[in-house]
Design a protein around this nucleic acid. Structure first.
Lengths: 180, 180, 180, 180
DNA sequence: TATGAATGAGATTTCATTCAT
DNA sequence: TATGAATGAAATCTCATTCAT
């Protein structure tokens, strides 16, 4: 999962990411992370000062992966939105762990300010894009509300890969139907 | 032992419920639960054998509370759905902790079979009702898909009380618009 | 295992005796003892003040059962000894739990004075009988030593019912051979 | 880490061994073991994963110490047996704790498979040696039975150092008398 | 960079015992 | 006699973190 070029720190973050998907943030143990990378427990602390720091790094890692699905700028709004939701549904199917981790982080963010900062920044960017997209759609009276519905739907379906295409597909249809 | 008040066990479950909302399942400590009720740590184990049992009881408690929002049977489908989503939005505003706990439990259910059993049963019942409702709507071609969209939207917005009315309201509008 | 006539206390002692055979003195739990008799944990303390007292009662119970094998007084020494060892071998085969419990108590006696008192009294009586018996045998130069050998052999074989007849039988033969 | 002295683990096992002799397996507390060595309770778990593992190590330690008394191979059977029983009587006098611990382990072995494995292996080896020795004696008709008598006598007298020489001495005499 | 050893704080659970009813 | 509820003391084990090497 990690090519020879990555830093020890990167390896550790990647390992932690995988473990969170597996056992949850609750079940994350530094011992396991170190084991997964093949170094000693105490050596881990040389690369990552504290567990909180590692979790924050995992959050950043997740945010970076999510950025992949940003809608293409050169397409007309309808198609851009469709492409975006398509990319999300695809990612949910391809890398379900990413969304498990994201769900974990959303919950953790409520109590951990440093995680919240990362999660919020990511979500704010996403929201902005969505609002812009909907504002550009003909006939959409309340772009903000529509954007929120999209966000909610994605968050609500992200843990169930089987349903994601259906749900997100339906969302596109409705949008198209209601605005064209 | 139930003088209109509540059993010790019920008190403990209620206290645990509150604590989960506050600090997450991850942060739940039996010491705290016992303190909240005003009994000794060891006495807690007299009423609830194990931590797992307490968590399961919390899950059942949450499921019971959610059952409150069941759509009324005597109304026509459109209005029943609207009433249901309205009740949900209301509950999200009134008792946000319930939805924090629910979100926690959804995640925990992925690793804890006894929690999963409770969560799955609740969700299955909800899904059934929603599918039935949508099937009764004129012109809905795919009731199952629509039901999933509703479920996803609720799950996706349950942690953000401010947005719930907007998002769920929009969902009703779309449904109405698309099917009437 | 207990007829309708026995006292609650007797029932409790009998139950404790059985449990010690099963799980050792180390594994003895008052909860289990109470359960076995069908009364509440706290009710047990009405009949037996403390766990130590119960253990002491078990020791007395065991001593009483061992007294069964006392050699008959009317027989000549050789035959009396043979009969005694035979009875012991028989009891080891019939009621192995008695000897498991006895072994447990021997060890406990080293740290628990009240158990030691019971165990020592029983053993002293046994020793006296054996010394008397050997003293009455023709040609035994050191009755005390021989008595100790018998005691040691019995204690050493009591946990292995299969070997008891062999070992104790051989002891009789040797005694007979050496003294007749 | 072994400068001629001993590993932390070895120190811990030795300390546990001593404590078992003192307070029994039942009274063995990890806190005490750690204290005896001068390290923190939690550090103990760094060297010995679990209490069960420590107890098993104590059993192995005891087995190793018992191996000391193995009869010399170069002597004729009579003398080898006498030397062996002599060595045992000597060890019982010199290191009585070893035999207390052994008695404790014998009882524990009935419920703890990992202890049983160690205890059984040790006893099997001892038995084999004894049977071989008796088979080599002139005129012994049933070497196995005689070996069992020896084992029983040793086990029966191991907790009473004062009697060990007498009882085991007498055993040698009888063997000599009966077979020569 | 890396490790072995150590630590301290804490968590769940067990159990004999007590007390009011 | 009997019980439900409560307690306190203790025990094992876990885990992030630190420090000397």
């Amino acid at each position: 999962m990690v090519d020879g070029k990555s830093t020890r720190r990167e390896q550790l973050v990647a390992a932690a990411f995988g473990l969170v998907a597996e056992v949850g943030l609750e079940g994350l143990r530094l011992r396991r992370v170190a084991d997964a990378v093949g170094i000693d427990q105490s050596t881990l602390h040389y690369h990552v000062a504290t567990k909180a720091e590692l979790v924050e790094a995992v959050a950043q890692h997740a945010a970076a992966l999510l950025a992949t699905t940003a809608p293409p700028r050169h397409l007309p709004p309808h198609e851009a939105l469709a492409a975006h939701l398509d990319a999300l549904a695809g990612l949910i199917a391809t890398r379900p762990e990413l969304f498990t981790v994201t769900a974990e982080l959303d919950l953790r963010a409520r109590r951990d300010p440093s995680v919240r900062a990362v999660v919020d920044r990511q979500e704010a960017g996403w929201r902005e894009v969505l609002v812009g997209l909907h504002a550009a759609l003909d006939g959409d009276d309340d772009p903000a509300a529509r954007a929120e519905l999209v966000i909610a739907a994605v968050k609500g379906v992200r843990l169930v890969p089987d349903l994601a295409p259906t749900v997100l597909g339906r969302l596109v249809e409705q949008t198209t139907g209601a605005t064209r």
